[in-house]
Every structure is written in C-alpha cells, then in structure tokens.
Write a protein that binds this DNA or RNA. Structure first.
Length: 388
RNA sequence: GGAUGGGUGCCGGAGUGGUUAAUCGGAGCAGACUGUAAAUCUGCCGCUCGGAAGGGCUGCGGGGGUUCGAAUCCCUCCCCAUCCA
C-alpha cells in the first residue's frame, strides 16, 4: 500500500483529493489536524475528536521530550496508548520551537541548544535526536528537524536556514530506523521565491514520504504567504502528500487547498476558542459580546456540532463571562467541528469538480480580520510577553 | 449624647496644596490570536464636540471659606462603622 494515493486533481485549480495510509489507519485529504502538543488537544477528549470526525492530530516532540520525556511515553506503550488516541498522529520535530522559543536557544550546524522553558535546564537537539525521540513516541508521521527563520529574515538568514534545513534533512533520513513510521521533509526559504524553489528542489531530491511547507504564517501578510505557496507547491512531486505547517485559519485552508496542499495543522481553532472566538461562515465572532446575553437560539444555526445542537448562545456567553471551563470546551468542540465541516465540504466540492465555485462562495462570505490590526496586535502580544 | 475611624468615578481601593479627569484591581465595552511557554494579550472605560489631533463642561458626601491654585487646609451640616453611656 502506498503511503499516499492521489485520487483526483481539481480541473480548475490545484486542489487535490487523496488518502494517506498509515499504520494507525487512513487519512483522507485534504485534512485538518487539531494540535495536541502535550498529547492533548486542549480541553477535548479523544471521544469528542472522534465524534467530530477528526482523522489525525499533531503532537509535539519537543514538549513531550521535556515532559514526561520521550522515554516515559515509550515505556508506557507509545503516544497512541498514552493518550488513548488510536488514529494517526503526526509529530512536529521541535523545529517550530527553534522559532517560537528563539530567545531560549542557540543554534549552529550541529544542532540547537535549548534552555528548557520549564526548569531552565539545557538540552541539545540534533536532527538525529529529533528523529530518535519521535520514534520513541511512535507517531505515524515524523517531521524532519528544520530551522524556521522568522518571516522578517533577510536573504542571508533565509539562505542559511534553508541550507541548514537541507543538511539536517539528510541527517534525519539517515538516522531514521522505523520503517512503519513515515518521515516528511520541510521546505523553508523565507520570503524569497527563488529560495523557496531551491529549497523545494533540494528537499524533494531526498527520499521523504511527504513534503511540508514550513516557515509560513509567521506574521507576514496573507498575500505574501499565498505567493510563497505558489512558488513552492509546483515544485513538489504530485505523488506525495503536501503539508502546510501551522496553518488553519478557515480562509487559509481554502486558499491552501486551491494551491495544492493536502494537510493542515493549527492551534488556531482551539486557542481562539479558549478566548471566546467562534468560527462562523461569516467569520470569527466573539461569544462574550453583549449581543448574546439573551440570545436563546443556537450561536450558529448552520452548525450541527454538539455545542450548537445543545446549547444557546446565551448559555455560552454566560459560561465565558463566568470563566467556566465548560465554555472553553464547548467553544473548542464548535471550532474544530467547524473546520472539519469545512474540510468535508472541500472534499465534496473537489469530488464534484466544484471546488473553485465553493472557494469563491466561501471566501466571499467569510470576513477576514484586517491585516494591519492583526500585525499591530500581534506585535503588542509579543511585547507584553517578552517582558516576563 | 460622647469617643475614634471613615465618606473618592459602576464596585473595591490609592492619593493629604499644583505635574490629577484623578495610580491600581475588578466589572463593563470592543479587538487580536495560524507546526501552543497562550483559560493569553491589547485598547477603551465622567459627560460632550471631533475621523483624529485636540477642545469644552462637570468632578473626590452637601454647603461655605482660605489660596494664584483644593480630593487634599479651615468651618459647618449630613451619612456610615466600631466602641462608651
């Protein structure tokens, strides 16, 4: 059985329909993977994810290595057993933490020295170690250890991280021993078209089971990100799965599929849910708003998720205003279910050769946050948190 | 009746002569969040005109006074808490 089967390509776009075959089962694509870095999709049980329909989730090598440690997870029967999720799991190598915890690490060609955010202890990550630890976790798909540069990286840094990522990719493949576990390589290249192309060519020359596009959606404007995608996916082999890392805003999933992406993962639906924002066909809406205090109807009448079937907007509003934990759970269920419904609709549209019509319709209705506001507030968040 | 301590913006609570439309919490009103150090962060939060910059008005229990200037000092009245009769 092939690791990836391409079933169909849309006639009017690059959208694809396919299936990823893993030892834990099949994953139909396009697919969205909720993120459970610490072996838990925050606030949700595996049963709830199953009820929604989720086919694959993402866990994090770095976080689990620090606690409870990869070895402990291994001794407890592996990640699936440990967290009681028996469908496919993809693990991030820790490459993203090279970016997100950049102030706690130093990097050279050999690897990355992290100062643990938990207790300050030092840990040296190498590509070999990143692969070995993911083998201990027993994920179905392991990611290569990459160097993620910030979106503002200049040409020099983007080139360096690209070269380092290629070097590390080769070492990852060489270190990999578990045949039943797939490994995906990652394309970097910053915000430079030619570097993206070069990275794609270098990485796809290696015998990975699938290919990821990394280093996007890190604060650059959306058009930029879409542009970079367009410079990358044409250089990826059609017979391997393509994974856009860390992307999961509804509009970006649609845009990504249109540009030939099969797999997405993102913390957005669950994080945003914990802060009271719910996805709707018209865009994200804050359930805390005063307008919902007395709304006895379902928050989203178009939604058939557990939350919308059983609770009023007024009740959700109350839970959030009262800081009740159930609010975060119900909102998370809704947001993950919303994305899953989006994925199902996308698949259906591709099947019927109607993807571009669907995409135009969806994007026409879905209100996206103003770019300037996004960037401004993101900056403020970073500033506030760097103080600590 | 007496003693003591108090009365500050929606609430709690700083502030004891100018830099105070008034620190800081909470509540309230909005917004952000993209391979999770995120149940986090940001802005607004007396009234009013303005898109904004900025302007006007009112304001620290009530009234009166001192002062160039008062939430802050003085007088007086009202109210609250505790204690004593």
């Amino acid at each position: 059985m092939q690791n990836f089967e391409l079933w169909k390509t849309d006639v009017n776009s690059q959208a694809r329909l396919g299936v990823i075959n893993t030892t834990s089962g099949a994953v139909h694509t396009p697919v969205f993977c909720p993120v459970g870095s610490l072996a838990t999709v925050k606030t949700l049980t595996p049963d709830e994810l199953n009820d929604i329909g989720c086919e694959m989730i993402l866990a994090n090598n770095y976080h689990l290595y620090l606690r409870p440690t990869s070895q402990v997870v291994h001794e407890l029967g592996g990640l699936h057993n440990f967290m009681n999720w028996h469908k496919p799991i993809i693990t991030d190598s820790g490459g993203f933490q090279v970016f997100s915890l950049s102030h706690l690490r130093t990097i050279n060609d050999e690897g990355v020295n992290f100062k643990s955010h938990i207790d300050g202890s030092n840990h040296f990550f190498t590509p070999e170690k990143a692969i070995h630890m993911q083998e201990l976790l027993g994920s179905d798909i392991a990611m290569a250890f990459d160097h993620v540069p910030p979106s503002c990286a200049d040409r020099e840094l983007a080139t360096k991280s690209l070269e380092r990522t290629t070097l590390w990719a080769e070492r990852c493949l060489k270190a990999h021993t578990r045949k039943e576990q797939q490994v995906y390589g990652i394309v970097q290249g910053g915000m430079f078209s030619d570097l993206r192309r070069r990275a794609a060519q270098e990485i796809t020359a290696l015998s990975f089971d699938g290919f990821a596009v990394g280093g996007l959606s890190l604060g650059e404007p959306k058009e930029r990100m879409y542009g970079m995608l367009e410079e990358t996916t044409p250089f990826l082999p059609p017979d391997k799965a393509r994974y856009l890392m860390g992307v999961g805003a509804p509009e970006d999933i649609v845009a990504g599929v249109a540009r030939g992406i099969d797999v997405f993962d993102c913390v957005l639906p669950t994080r945003v849910a914990r802060n009271g924002a719910l996805f709707t066909d018209e865009g994200r809406k804050n359930i805390r708003r005063a307008q919902y205090i007395k709304m006895d109807d379902s928050f989203d009448p178009n939604c058939d998720c557990y939350t919308c079937r059983n609770f009023s907007a007024a009740y959700l509003n109350h839970l959030f205003r009262s800081d009740e934990l159930l609010g975060m759970r119900l909102a998370s269920i809704h947001n993950v279910a919303f994305l899953w419904r989006l994925i199902k609709n996308i698949r259906l549209a591709i099947t019927r050769d109607r993807f571009t019509i669907f995409a135009t319709d969806f994007l026409g209705r879905y209100q996206v946050t103003n770019e300037d506001k996004r960037l401004e507030q993101k900056e403020q968040w970073l500033k506030a948190n760097n103080r600590k």
